[in-house]
């Protein structure tokens, strides 16, 4: 896979995202927010976690206007994969590539801990390596992760199977006590209608090595690699 990881001023998970991306032998390019072009043939662009532009005004509000974001939008429109992690998810909603918004945690506190996620849709480019109903242990670290959207948008997300992950307890129960930030319907990650843009608040790159306590995040990278591989094979055939 050929992967680009964007660095904005204030990104702090870009190196981790590059590390996790390279584990399967993928070629990883560091992309700078001011760049106006990306290497040709990128399969995936990752918007990593952090505090782009100091979270000034709103999380992701300023990053979405950076020159690189025009390239990300073009890449997405071409059908290329885009993965937004934490602050990257916030940027994708601000840019209108994903519906809804992420607002201050209901607890008003920054929450940094490993949570359980239930896979709600295993037929996406980001989750095919796992299965529906699987429970993943992946860390979160955010102050603004409460997913919110108007009722009609939530309805559409449910109907179209666009909710990819929900916060759950250790047994997979979708309960309020397992909701770390007050997200509507325990939403932790969603995908766009086209199926090529996903945003999630948890950090799969922080669950990518046994030493880190979990390798469940690797399912995301393995799924994307399988998706890209399948498309490459189809193109050759």
């Amino acid at each position: 896979m050929k992967i680009g990881v964007v660095s904005f001023p204030g990104s702090n998970c870009d190196a981790d995202a590059r590390f996790a991306s390279a584990l399967d032998g993928s070629t990883v390019h560091a992309l700078w927010h001011k760049d106006t072009e990306v290497p040709s043939g990128l399969d995936l662009i990752i918007l990593p976690g952090g505090f782009s532009y100091g979270d000034y005004l709103r999380t992701g509000a300023i990053a979405r206007f950076s020159p690189m974001m025009s390239e990300v939008v073009k890449h997405a429109k071409r059908g290329g994969l885009v993965l937004g992690i934490c602050n990257g998810f916030q940027i994708l909603t601000e840019a209108g590539l994903l519906p809804g918004a992420l607002i201050r945690n209901a607890s008003l506190s920054f929450v940094c801990k490993t949570v359980h996620l239930k896979v709600e849709n295993d037929s996406t480019a980001f989750t095919s390596a796992t299965s529906k109903g699987a429970i993943l242990a992946i860390p979160i670290a955010h102050g603004d992760g409460r997913y919110t959207a108007p009722d009609d948008v939530l309805h559409q997300l449910e109907q179209e199977n666009q909710i990819v992950y929900r916060y759950c307890d250790a047994n997979g129960g979708i309960v309020e006590s397992a909701n770390p930030n007050g997200s509507l319907r325990n939403i932790a990650g969603i995908i766009n209608e086209g199926g090529n843009v996903m945003g999630l608040m948890p950090h799969p790159e922080r669950a990518s090595d046994v030493l880190l306590g979990s390798v469940d995040g690797l399912t995301v990278f393995a799924s994307m690699a399988a998706h890209v591989g399948a498309h490459a094979t189809a193109a050759v055939a």
Binding site: L57, A61, I62, F65, E94, G100, A101, I103, T148, P150
Partner: peptide, 8 residues
Amino acid sequence: KLLANPVM
């Protein structure tokens, strides 16, 4: 465009 997010 910038100062407010009409979604929220």
